[in-house]
Write a protein that binds this DNA or RNA. Structure first.
Length: 260
DNA sequence: ATGGTAGTTTAACTA
């Protein structure tokens, strides 16, 4: 089963790019972030015609997440538990073939310090709490999406330049570590131990031609899924195309249950 | 000294 995450930065602007990528790479499950539209405005038909079921958790103008699946989706749940006053659409879960898919768009948190950074840290605490519940349930799961955190120095083209940035703050990195140390496996790093694995290049300052990239999109696998990890990939050429998102797709292939 | 780009809600926000 091939599962991908892709921060598309606007479903309307990315429609041709996304359709093309789905047809070429045929993921079983695709988790999208920053759809930037309401549920009722989502262009469902184009994707349903490719054989996908859609779960949408949208928001006007900002944020918004979605899960596409070629297989039946069950128990769709919108929003990250733990704060009933949180109105931002950043989290969506669904079960596909017995795997709990947790699609997330973690808050950016800039500027530091400030309300937005406080919201980011609180959101990460809620994500850790959710991971603990899922681990206790023993349901195989993965948390995947735009984490807006550098896990290691190697995940940033110039760590010194980001010293004051929310993506690099010790408090945010400590929470990401805490999530990982619950027993989750960083799929891309597991399969590619050395070297940068950038997933994002800013639209500004010639970041793409200079390869000034960041690794902020992750697939974090529960122990049962880590045992089933076959392959991972980053569809880097997507960044060089016309009307590209500033992120590229990141994916993993999981062995089917019972297969060798 | 502070810009540069892109997407959305076409003005101002978010990243």
């Amino acid at each position: 089963m091939k599962i991908a995450t892709f921060n598309i930065n606007g479903i309307k602007a990315r429609l041709p790019r996304l359709l093309e990528w789905l047809e070429e790479t045929k993921p079983d499950v695709a988790c999208l972030q920053e759809i930037k539209c309401l549920d009722e405005n989502f262009p469902r038909l184009e994707f349903e015609a490719l054989g996908y079921q859609l779960a949408i958790h949208g928001q006007k103008g900002f944020n918004g997440v979605a899960i596409f699946s070629r297989h039946e989706m069950q128990d769709i749940e919108r929003g990250l538990p733990g704060d009933e006053n949180d109105i931002q659409s950043r989290y969506l879960e669904a079960t596909v073939k017995g795997v709990r898919i947790c699609c997330l768009y973690l808050p950016n948190g800039n500027p530091v310090p400030g309300e937005k950074f406080d919201y980011k840290l609180a959101w990460m605490d809620r994500l850790i709490a959710r991971a603990k519940i899922l681990l206790a349930s023993e349901v195989p799961f993965l948390m995947l999406g735009d984490f807006n955190v550098f896990q290691e120095e190697i995940d940033c083209y110039d760590p010194a330049a980001f010293a004051g940035d929310a993506l690099m703050q010790p408090d945010a990195r400590a929470r990401f570590r805490a999530l990982k140390y619950l027993g989750l496996t960083d799929a891309s790093r597991q399969k590619t131990p050395g070297g940068p694995l950038y997933t994002f290049w800013d639209y500004q300052r010639g970041a793409w031609p200079r390869d000034n990239g960041l690794r902020i999109d992750f697939l974090m696998l529960s122990p049962a899924l880590a045992d089933r990890l076959v392959e991972t990939g980053i569809d880097r050429p997507e960044r060089g195309k016309e009307k590209a998102s500033d992120h590229v797709p990141v994916w993993c292939e999981l062995r089917e249950v019972g297969a060798n």
